[in-house]
Design a protein around this nucleic acid. Structure first.
Lengths: 342, 342
DNA sequence: GAAGAGTTTGCAAACGGTTGCAGCAAATGT
DNA sequence: ACATTTGCTGCAACCGTTTGCAAACTCTTC
């Protein structure tokens, strides 16, 4: 049916090996033959069968990507970055969504392991032991997470939290709430840690408001607690939560940013569209995707020894319109004060 | 490195063929042998190499999925539906994002064709001739689009548009605007067509406001024209556009739904979160994904002759809070009138 | 007890590539 | 003119499966 290497060989009057070499190790064959072969191949519309090639070389030209939830607007940018970088290197990407279920993820790793050259794993919930098991099944790069001895691309959470706290502190907030994400999430733990350190250093009181689902509804649920706690600003686990929180606050008649400042994390597209637009910590999603592919391919090709195995990306606070100076008892909050930019 | 069928064979004291059969055509081997083989395979952690299997059977166990933009919140649900159905049938999915570029898409089809058993193609922009070319390269199922002779899963756009117009008409709107999507989009053309028919039948004037990018910003851009046109309600090409439009209208001080009603299409998650929540035409995204896999696999296995090749899914109007009775010259719009439900 | 039928198994040839090795011709060295 | 290197090519084995075919064996059946 499809045109094979032997078809090309016959048509060009050479052996299959020569065709193979003409296409993949060009300067091992005579320029004249090479030209003829490539012309014939082109003409016949020959495309090497990657599966077959994979069989003999052990390299499939495929990458696997496992992530918890494609519907979370954080991920599409990452995926796009990954796809872009992969395609440029002539790799295809298998994407698998685990529906936020860590056990499914390990299963997916098992299934994918044999079919790909490496796996990009975005699994905030897997346990360290599981991660290490996964890493034995195939070359793995972790995204948005660090784990001893496994290559990873992560984000400077601590630095990001510092930026957030400093921004709030500079505006006079002395008591800041944190609407936490899932207890089992690695990022969540990192963020709490970063917030504590930064709060401490800036003389700010950090009030942990509990754990919530990393969704819009999770944020809505958190509004009540935020109001009661008496903080003047709240940081949310991510933008989706922050958006829900904004919604919950509005329902309760709390003016943002006049009476309460809100900060998100991720900078998902929606955060700039909403009104007032959300102050948030930008995470370079697309870059993270590209970097992870870059790292993975390096590990596959290079002697893998002397390549930096953990990369940490910088974040940047985008001061938009949900943060403002803390209301004081003496002054009524204006709600129209200009939001300072960093 | 990995354990092969021969390893299992040796360990079980049988030939490779027997192992192969024990696992894939169980009742062709002696129950006793079968038991032994499966036990050994299990114990050794044997997993058949799919690429190798693909080589000899011609079936890869992979499906390709090509779509224009993962970042468009419409698609993740579709992708999830596809993945779910595919995994259940023991297929893996290659996902490729074309960045809204139709020519990239044809290239992707070419690349994927040899590596997958079939392709699910979601390409609003490809020309019919290109689609037909694509369909010659691999079994193809179209999603959200119909094209003579190519199997497809689409949505009842005309019926949906009728629901929208009837809803608006019932509330006294006599002049309805349409914020169009890209000129080259098939769905857009279908929607215009459906709107015209329905408007005609309901004695409603349809004002086409032009073509806009299928994004939030596209919607924002459309606001000015909508206001000027003097319509009392506007239908947007999709929810993203509707959301942008809402934003643009607010900037201009136009009260929704008091002075202007707005209807979206797609029912993306965000549409329920925004305030006021968006009245929109729900498209069964997840179902569309599952159906497309179902159809594709049927075409691959069944004698493919007598399987319905085009499936059309029903839509449902979700009346939320951006639609209300048309303002009249005699009565001032209240803006707080209760939005009727269908 | 031999022939025929039915099971169960193994051999070997694919599937479509890659690659070590050997062969051959031309170029180079002396 | 001969030996040696160099450059290019083909042969054949291999990657891990599946599968047509035939061999071997076990039952029936007459």
């Amino acid at each position: 049916m499809a045109v094979t290497i032997r078809d090309v060989a016959k048509a060009a009057g050479v052996s299959a090996s020569t065709v193979s070499r003409a296409l993949s190790i060009p300067d091992m064959v005579d320029p004249e033959t090479r030209r003829r072969v490539t012309r014939v191949a082109e003409h016949l519309g020959y495309r090497p069968n990657r599966a077959a090639r994979g069989l003999s070389t052990g390299r499939t030209g495929n990458l696997g990507l496992i992530l918890p939830d494609l519907a979370n607007p954080f991920f599409p940018s990452v995926v796009k970055g990954i796809q872009l970088a992969a395609h440029q290197a002539d790799y295809q990407v298998f994407v698998a969504d685990s529906d936020e279920d860590a056990s499914t993820e390990l299963g997916l790793v098992r299934v994918l392991a044999k079919q790909v050259d490496g796996i990009i794993l975005c699994s905030p919930r897997m346990k360290p032991a599981e991660l290490r098991e996964a890493a034995t099944l195939a070359p793995v790069v972790l995204v948005n997470r660090k784990e001893r001895s496994i290559p990873s691309v992560s984000v400077d959470n601590v630095g990001g939290m510092r930026q957030i706290i400093e921004h709030l502190s500079a505006q006079g907030h002395r008591s800041v709430g944190y609407v936490g994400g899932p207890r089992s999430s690695w990022s969540n733990r990192e963020r709490v840690r970063g917030l504590r350190v930064a709060a401490n250093q800036n003389g700010v009181e950090l009030v942990e408001l509990g754990h919530f689902a990393p969704t819009f509804d999770g944020g809505t649920d958190a509004a009540e607690g935020a109001v009661i706690s008496g903080v003047s600003a709240v940081v949310a686990y991510n933008d989706l939560v922050a958006l829900g929180l904004l919604n919950g606050l509005r329902d309760r008649g709390v003016d943002v940013p006049g009476e309460m400042s809100v900060v998100g994390i991720d900078n998902i597209p929606m955060s700039a569209m909403v009104q007032p637009s959300l102050t948030t910590l930008d995470i370079p999603k697309d870059l993270a995707g590209r970097t992870s592919v870059d790292l993975l391919l390096r590990l596959l090709t290079e002697e893998s020894a002397h390549v930096a195995r953990a990369r940490e990306l910088a974040t940047e606070l985008l001061a938009r319109h949900t943060t403002a100076p803390a209301p004081t008892t003496s002054t009524r909050p204006t709600g129209r004060s200009r939001t300072p930019r960093l």
